[in-house]
């Protein structure tokens, strides 16, 4: 599975520009699912299984997009000014490298002089240096998007890269759709767009799919680093079953079903309350007359930096848990 993860995280796809990532997923799932289509907002909607007598339409959602930047101005000397696409924190940007989607070119992020060694400027006082000495040599136009550029590192049990948020969820969904054999459900695997800019893809995908049950697959924060904010989730303790985040309250019936499934399959899991941030589950829950939802979270350190870290065991256990859950009829208490 590490090859799948490497391929996904090393592809560039900021919100709204998910084409290349989507093409990678389409290739991975070719011949592995019953159907695949791309909807109006670019969501890749894959289906497997028939809704039997005890079955439901279950939507799983992992977002294709990653945070990135968009060029706003190029000056005479070729320095590119930019703003963020999704939640890019200035302190994670300085010294970073970005790769432009259109040309594949890399630039480095510099910052206007700052007397303080402990604070950073906002993004408006940063620029991208493309290594050019004049504007004519820069092949970047206003509106071009780029994502952070950082290679995949396999540390053994732990994996590090940019865009683990949420390519790790994408990898888990790809693997789940591939391995899923007998299911009483119609399983709809949605690879959604524009999550980082307001859960826009999953919201419309859920309206279109009209599922009976929804589960988002996304990363969550951890409390297992020095002086971390209080949170019991830790890397390596298993996938996290979300109870609540700041934009969504999981349906208690879905939480109970997921926990029971993990216990039955003897898989490790953690319960998660996340104080800041939300996922595609929010978009699914609000669709039409409402959808019972939950979220399977992959614990991840350093979220929204170019070095997001996950535990490989958590990743493998996520696939196992999803397969266990999807292979049996669902009775929501």
């Amino acid at each position: 599975m590490k090859d799948i993860i490497r391929q996904l995280v090393e592809t560039t796809g900021p919100s709204g520009y998910e084409n290349e990532v989507r093409a990678v997923v389409q290739k991975m799932l070719k011949g592995q699912v019953d159907s695949m289509k791309v909807d109006a907002l670019g969501n890749l909607i894959t289906r497997k299984g028939q809704k039997g007598q005890d079955g439901l339409t279950i939507m799983l959602s992992a977002h294709l997009d990653e945070i990135g930047i968009i060029a706003t101005h190029i000056d005479e000397r070729g320095f590119v000014r930019f703003t963020s696409v999704g939640g890019v924190h200035p302190r994670n940007a300085v010294g970073g490298r970005v790769r432009f989607l259109k040309t594949g070119q890399v630039g480095v992020i510099g910052m206007e002089p700052n007397q303080s060694a402990t604070s950073v400027h906002g993004l408006d006082k940063m620029y991208i240096d493309m290594g050019a000495s004049r504007r004519a040599d820069v092949k970047v136009s206003v509106g071009d998007v780029a994502a952070f550029d950082r290679p995949f590192e396999d540390l053994g049990q732990r994996l590090v890269s940019k865009a683990m948020d949420d390519r790790i969820g994408v990898a888990i969904l790809v693997e789940t759709m591939k391995q899923l054999k007998a299911t009483p459900h119609e399983v709809v695997g949605v690879f959604s767009t524009q999550e980082e800019v307001g859960i826009r893809g999953a919201t419309t995908a859920a309206y279109g799919v009209d599922p009976d049950l929804g589960i988002a697959l996304d990363v969550t924060l951890t409390g297992d680093t020095p002086q971390a904010a209080t949170m019991e989730v830790a890397l390596g303790n298993g996938p996290a079953i979300k109870v609540k985040d700041s934009g969504m309250i999981s349906d208690p019936r879905v939480v109970a079903w997921m926990e029971a499934g993990a216990k039955r399959a003897r898989l490790p899991y953690q319960l998660e309350v996340l104080s800041g941030g939300t996922t595609d589950a929010r978009g699914i829950q609000m669709a039409r007359a409402g959808v019972p939802v939950g979220c399977l979270s992959i614990p991840c350190r350093y979220v929204h930096t170019p070095s997001e870290m996950v535990d490989y065991g958590d990743v493998q256990n996520s696939v196992k848990l999803l397969l266990a859950l999807l292979s049996k009829p669902v009775k929501l208490a």
Partner: peptide, 16 residues
């Protein structure tokens, strides 16, 4: 439901 958190009760009941 959920007025204090998401307002999704009103949204979904209104739709239904």
């Amino acid at each position: 439901v959920q007025e204090e958190a998401t307002l999704f009760g009103a949204l979904t009941s209104g739709y239904a």
